[in-house]
Design a protein around this nucleic acid. Sequence first.
DNA 1: GAGAGTTGAATTTTT
DNA 2: TTCAACTCTC
Length: 665
Amino acid sequence: MHKLNQRQREAVRYHEGPLLVLAGAGSGKTGVIAHKIVHLIDACEVEPANIAAITFTNKAAREMRERVRTLLGKRNVKPWISTFHTLGLRILREEHEALGYRRGFSILDAGDCAGLLADLMRRDSPGTDIAVPQVQQAISAWKYAMVPPDAVALDAPSPAESLAARCYAPYCDALMTFNAVDFDDLIMGPVRLLREDPEVLERWRARIDFMLVDEYQDTNLSQYELVRLLVGEHQRLTAVGDDDQSIYAWRGARPENIAQLQTDFPRLKVVKLEQNYRSSGIILKAANTLIANNPHVFEKKLWSEHGFGDKIRVVALNTEHDETERIANDILHRKLMHGGGFADFAVLLRSNHQARLFERAFRERDIPYVLSGGRSFFDYAEVKDCVCYLRLLANPDDNNALLRIINTPRRTIGTATVKVLVDVAAESGLSLLETALDERFRLRVSPQVGRRVGEFATWLTRFQREHEATPPPDAFATLLADIGYDDWLEQTAENEKAAERRKENVAELSRWIARIYARDEERTTADIVAALTLFDIADRQDDNADFDGVALTTLHAAKGLEYPHVYLAGFEENLLPHRSSIEQDTIEEERRLAYVGITRAKRSLTLTFCRTRKRYGQLESCEPSRFLDELPADELAWDGRVTDAAANRETGRGTLDQLKRLLQT
DNA sequence: GAGAGTTGAATTTTT
DNA sequence: TTCAACTCTC
């Protein structure tokens, strides 16, 4: 506690009513939340289990848990620290019956849902050129805005939206029959229930004495609603956020939820954390000046006790090729001059495709790097297969899972057979697994086919029954042996190396299952599959946590991280701000994105832009970002022949005018 | 079930 | 331009 500054202490100690902590970048907010949890336990005698601290990502939750554990020392108490979705799952698990779900319901990830939707879209409009993600996003948007299928207008202006509207209800119905939920349902379901059932609402309110919400500016409508409902009249809520770091509006985040707090909680107290412990004075000045161009409900200005530091370098390059070379060489040069590791450097990008050139430049120079994003563990086919088997064990109605594995490993059950199975299931109202053993299905296929499908269904049903009481890790091992999965991986892999990798993935999954089971909170197969799905093995990336490489990451993925030396590449119009944001007039969010990028830097910041860049294989001329003009000119050190961004733009405009005039005459 | 050919996307992405 | 994903065919 003595390590905290006065504002931080105030935020920790105040618990009498609703509190909003406006935590600027690098102001130590995780520490504040962690200290507050401990303060509530120690000084306010709140029951640890009745404290709910909610984050957005598993990573944030893990960090929070670790901080709290360090502060608590040897004491073994467990405040509830989880993501929004895990909180939703916790409620749904206990209340699933009220919402019409059966035991062991499945959680479908985005990929599963996309497949399901693609199917529904094909059925509605064969040969449509509307992309699945578009429809998926529209439906997701309705869900997190709490708009039910029957409230959606079918005659939407755009074809994509009206297709989404037509698919919305069937999509929800399909999930219901599969006894499955998607990620949005994990929030929406509990909200619906808490709204409709006062008794359930009371029960959950009684279980939560104090709520803390991290990254509050990222909450969407249904998440805010969940918080509001659970907090109830006693209003013991601490929301921590920064409206200037809201960069997820495009996926439903409502930075206005921050201002909304004042309306919904008139007694709201506001504490601003403005002391920054990360960056040099010049970097903060740049950040402050830039973000001052956005409208604000609460004014905020970062300051620090660090020195003023080096000026911000602005480098103009001719091509994007020059840009990557320049940055790569610069990193090598600096490392040589000042020592330190590669991990002290980060190249921040607006979009993923910018990364490719950097990868090449880094490889040419043997610069180790870590790329953000990338493939998830669960994208591997073999991992998906295994998870589907587990899902099916927990939830025999999970048709989606059954379709994936009915012929994996090969059981000579082809598409034609599956189609008959699906048709009969639709007619009879049975699940696919039940249909497989049903007379009506057998009459429609040849005896051999009927026997093959029947064998599989019988085996699965029996396995399920016999292993109901088996610890899931053991059941999984037996299952793999029964289906001869390792053999199949070997047979189908292109080479030995690939086979080894795939088998290792399965082995790793087994280890995860064992590890989750050992946590003692998740006992059933359904619990474990849910944990796997919501978890996404983010910890894998942490394996490389001590890997010494340059961070090559998007601005979005860099949020919450910090680096001594930051390069912001592509500081150009049409890239930052992005072209589509200019078109859609969402410049403010782009400005916040630039702000997030700038505030990642501790000691040095370099902004680069190119005069030309290839787009769709065509050379286009570029202008420096308008945000360059919004930075304090005195603190910029220009490198390259261009000395003034505004002047540069003027000349560009002048030439354009001349061209226009030429064309007119 | 593999290989060739075609088509489409290039803004951000966690759960 | 370039790559990935999907489709079609044998």
